[in-house]
Design a binder for these strands. Structure first.
Length: 559
RNA sequence: UGGGGAAUCGUUCAAUGGUAGGACGCCGGACUCUGACUCCGUUAAUCAAGGUUCGAAUCCUUGUUCCCCAGCCA
């Protein structure tokens, strides 16, 4: 991790940890954990949590566990576990041998539940789900005690054992903590801690038909792992009294402490698992790794780098304010990293053929072009030049405005790394009037040199040699949603951006790109950063994803 | 409506009774064989009203707005 990835000022969580350390809590240890449920792919919001938890562990010479919080078999799978492991690792973090599963604690959690029953702190309730809801009361009215609340301990023990044995149907009984049905905090109104669910678990199979609830399993899993600071998001703030209730009753010695921070919201996208799953299941995107998705796997395929994402997670900070981070900050971090590390290359997206009339028909020469203008250590490559070239259609205008520094009628322009060429004439399609071809001449003396007569040629454009270039498909991405905060809309699906993907098929990449490896990134000069698609790109048919465009101050002028 | 949280430039994070600062964005300029990068400059905020204090973003009072909670999800 680089220096820039370390925050300059403490956030409130690190303040709390400093305080705990200063009063000698937890024997001076710091232990965190990243606890995703394996029921979906992780996204940039999870990345914030990953960076926070692993970052704190590293900073305090502590540990951070990776724990799969798999207490509800519905929707959980090994596919998701594998994706999470891959994604967290790809982000650059290491949990050593501390990969844990809440499902590995089922037996211990069961014992904890029995202990609670024995203490008179839990009971088996036989109300239906609807009845439990009714008995719970509302925000303004207290709940009512369940008629089963004072079931004798022996009977509770017996019933709970039979629940485990599978003697009862789903929903027939639940185990509840005996707390306070009149609590102003609804979480504390005798919360359910075990439910019967005849659902095979992806890891424990059919061994269990009862599963612990989050509130019970999570805090005790933390305690079992010796977690000191259990960092979670704001919506669990109401659950903290319950977290403490279980831990105080069942755990001796050092107890974990829950701290809540504000989850990340990113403009022009959605970051809730439910909505992301919907996008995938309704085929509104091409899968979890669709480059438009804010998932880690989607961003990887798009061409975002782990360092860029980590820097972003530091830049957004950690606080308790609800936030909506402008996606331009993420793009800034991506450009910052790629500008530094991506080699340059040339690729013409929308080709316009140019003939250099005075260039010998059979001649070819190689130009040696630096891979990075500020970093000679990145080397250079040979770029072939010949009589027939392609340039970008946007780089020619028949009747350009004065500030247009490119090719136009009567104009001159520098071909990047090669000669200055001068416009001679254009060929148009008779029917459409569209310019189909340009005739130019080159100034032989300007090879890697300014014009001898001192004339100023301002424009520099990219180009490829028709005879040497490689055909390519280039996928241009734009924000997935047209609404700044689609998650806040009544129906987020209605705000999908119809133009979030544009596929360009007739592109031409410079010859050196023929060897481009999957996932490698380049800056296509004057266009943006592009990444070789890991799934679809082939040696004979290159496919590039645009990671992010270059900042474009000309676009503003041209408005 | 009961409970739990949060309010600082457009966005976001800081300032922990003593000059309201950084980042992104915006705008302007310099440089440039990428209209990129880099550099320089500008813009712009303490939710409101009272109070305490030599001094308040910070403490007190009252109010306002926003978020979360009534899954056998996490």
């Amino acid at each position: 991790m680089t220096e820039s990835e370390t925050s300059l000022t403490n956030d409130f969580i690190r303040d709390i940890i400093d305080e705990d350390l200063s009063i000698g809590k937890n024997d001076g240890k710091v232990a965190t954990r990243f606890p995703p449920e394996p029921n979906g792919y992780i996204h940039i919001g999870h990345a914030k949590s990953v960076c926070l938890n692993f970052g704190i562990a590293k900073q305090y010479q502590g540990t951070c566990n990776l724990r799969l919080d798999d207490t509800d078999p519905l929707g959980e799978s090994m596919e998701y576990v594998e994706s999470i492991i891959r994604d967290v690792r790809w982000l650059g973090f290491d949990w050593g041998n501390r990969l844990y599963y809440a499902s590995d604690y089922f037996e211990k959690l069961y014992s904890f539940a029995v202990e609670l029953i024995k203490k008179g702190d839990a009971y088996v309730c036989s109300l239906s789900a609807d009845e439990i809801r009714e008995y719970r009361g509302t925000f303004t009215e207290p709940g009512k005690d369940s008629p089963f609340r004072n079931r004798p301990i022996e009977e509770n023990l017996n019933m709970f054992a039979r629940m485990r044995q599978g003697e009862f149907a789903d929903g027939a009984h639940v185990l509840r903590a005996k707390i306070d049905m009149a609590s102003p905090n609804i979480v504390m109104r005798d919360p359910i801690i075990y439910r019967i669910k005849r659902e095979p678990h992806y890891r424990t199979g059919n061994k269990w038909v009862i599963y612990p609830m989050y509130d019970f399993a999570h805090c005790l899993s933390d305690a079992l792992e010796g977690i000191t600071h259990s960092i979670c998001t704001l919506e669990f703030e109401n659950n903290r009294p319950l977290y403490d209730w279980f831990v105080e009753r069942l755990i001796e010695g050092n107890r974990p402490r829950q701290i809540e921070f504000a989850r990340l919201n990113l403009s022009y996208t959605v970051l809730s698992k439910r909505r992301l799953i919907e996008l995938v299941q309704k085929n509104l995107v091409q899968g979890w790794d669709d480059p438009r998705m804010p998932t880690v796997t989607g961003m990887r395929r798009r061409g975002y780098t782990p360092a860029a994402i980590r820097n972003f997670c530091v830049a957004i900070g950690v606080a308790k304010n609800d936030n909506l981070i402008d996606v331009s900050l993420l793009e800034h971090c991506v450009r910052e990293d790629l500008n530094e590390n991506a080699p340059r290359a040339m690729c013409v997206l929308r080709p316009l053929k140019v003939l250099i009339d005075n260039y010998p028909e059979t001649q070819t020469e190689d130009f040696e072009i630096a891979n990075h203008p500020q970093k000679p250590e990145m080397g250079s490559r040979k770029v072939p030049f010949s009589r027939v070239l392609y340039i970008e259609r946007d780089d020619f205008m028949e009747d350009p405005p004065k500030k247009y520094h490119r090719l136009g009628t009567g104009r001159e322009v520098r071909l990047r790394g090669a000669y200055i060429i001068k416009f001679k004439k254009m060929v148009k399609d008779e029917k459409t009037g569209e310019v189909t071809q340009l005739h130019c001449t080159y100034d032989e003396q300007t090879r890697n040199a300014p014009p001898a007569d001192g004339r100023k040629v301002q424009g520099v454009i990219h180009w490829v040699s028709a005879a040497h270039c490689a055909p390519a498909e280039v996928r241009l991405y734009d924000r997935l949603f047209s609404s700044e905060n689609p998650g806040a809309e009544e129906e987020f699906i209605n705000f999908l951006n119809k133009d979030s993907l544009e596929v360009l098929t007739g592109c031409f990449a410079e010859a050196s790109l023929k060897d481009a490896q999957p996932l490698s990134k380049y800056q296509f000069e004057r266009l943006g950063y592009f990444c070789v698609d890991e799934k679809d790109s082939k040696a004979d048919k290159l496919v590039f994803n645009r990671v992010v465009a270059l900042r474009d101050s000309w676009a503003k002028v041209a408005r």
